[in-house]
């Protein structure tokens, strides 16, 4: 069965790229507060890091499972 971390990681990587990218081009601050915080860029970066970590561990587990399968066949 597919390692679930892989699709979750790719999903958050994609959403992180969309959100951070939008933060770069639009520079929307948080409405209705005085502090200037580009929340789309910041939170997009958080999602990117989370997505990258999940993708990495998912990909590693998939590779391990594939090599174990190959070895058991051999």
């Amino acid at each position: 069965m597919m390692d679930l971390r892989l699709p979750i990681g790719i999903f958050f990587l994609l959403v992180g790229i969309i959100l951070a990218g939008y933060g770069v081009v639009s520079t929307h601050d948080i409405p209705n507060i005085t502090e200037k915080i580009n929340i789309n860029l910041d939170w997009g970066a958080v999602l990117l890091v989370f997505g990258a970590a999940m993708t990495f561990f998912g990909w590693k587990a998939e590779a391990k499972a594939r090599s174990e399968k190959k070895n058991s066949k051999a």
């Binding site: 959403v15 969309i18 959100l19 939008y22 933060g23 639009s26 929307h28 601050d29 948080i30 409405p31 209705n32 507060i33 929340i39 789309n40 939170w43 997009g44």
Partner: peptide, 11 residues
């Protein structure tokens, strides 16, 4: 509505 800008609102 008050605090999420476009983008984060979608999330």
């Amino acid at each position: 509505a008050k605090y999420y800008p476009a983008g984060l609102l979608g999330l």
